[in-house]
Amino acid sequence: MVTMFLKSMLFPLIFALALAPRSQGVSQSRSQSQPSLATTFNEIKYHGGPLLTKPNSINIYLIWYGAFSRNDRSSITDFFASFNPSKGLVPHQEPTVATWWKTIQTYKDKSGNSVSSTVKLVKQIGDIYSLGKNIKRAQIANYVKHKIETKVLPFDSNGIYLVLTSRDVIVERFCMGSCGFHDNIVVYTERTRLVYAHIGNPLVQCPGLCAWPYSLPAYGPPGQQALVAPNGVGADGMVMNIATIIAGATTNPFKNGYFQGDPLAPLEAVTACPGIFGEGAYSGYPGNLMVDKISKASYNAYGANGRKFLLPAIWELTSSKCKVIH
Score class of each variant (00 low, 15 high):
residue 99 T to D: 15
residue 190 E to F: 11
residue 107 Y to D: 00
residue 99 T to A: 10
residue 147 K to F: 10
residue 168 D to F: 07
residue 154 P to R: 06
residue 106 T to A: 11
residue 153 L to V: 01
residue 143 Y to T: 01
residue 150 T to S: 13
residue 114 S to N: 13
residue 192 T to I: 11
residue 174 F to L: 06
residue 187 V to A: 03
residue 138 A to R: 15
residue 144 V to K: 00
residue 152 V to H: 14
residue 185 I to A: 05
residue 192 T to M: 12
residue 123 K to P: 00
residue 186 V to T: 14
residue 137 R to W: 04
residue 134 N to C: 09
residue 175 C to M: 10
residue 105 Q to D: 07
residue 163 V to N: 04
residue 181 F to N: 05
residue 183 D to H: 10
residue 189 T to F: 02
residue 187 V to E: 00
residue 176 M to W: 10
residue 176 M to H: 14
residue 157 S to R: 15
residue 160 I to C: 03
residue 172 E to G: 06
residue 167 R to T: 15
residue 156 D to N: 15
residue 106 T to M: 11
residue 187 V to G: 02
residue 106 T to G: 09
residue 172 E to I: 02
residue 110 K to S: 14
residue 128 I to R: 13
residue 170 I to F: 05
residue 182 H to C: 11
residue 190 E to L: 07
residue 138 A to M: 14
residue 168 D to G: 07
residue 184 N to P: 04
residue 107 Y to F: 12
residue 99 T to N: 14
residue 141 A to V: 06
residue 179 C to W: 03
residue 168 D to W: 08
residue 131 L to W: 00
residue 140 I to P: 00
residue 125 I to M: 06
residue 154 P to H: 05
residue 122 V to T: 15
residue 201 N to F: 04
residue 132 G to C: 00
residue 165 T to L: 01
residue 151 K to S: 14
residue 151 K to N: 14
residue 155 F to R: 09
residue 200 G to D: 06
residue 177 G to A: 08
residue 196 Y to R: 03
residue 180 G to H: 05
residue 147 K to C: 08
residue 154 P to M: 00
residue 124 Q to A: 12
residue 99 T to I: 03
residue 103 T to H: 05
residue 184 N to L: 06
residue 106 T to E: 13
residue 105 Q to N: 13
residue 134 N to D: 14
residue 140 I to N: 00
residue 127 D to N: 12
residue 160 I to W: 00
residue 191 R to D: 13
residue 116 S to Y: 00
residue 109 D to W: 06
residue 157 S to K: 15
residue 193 R to F: 11
residue 152 V to P: 03
residue 139 Q to F: 03
residue 176 M to P: 00
residue 151 K to I: 11
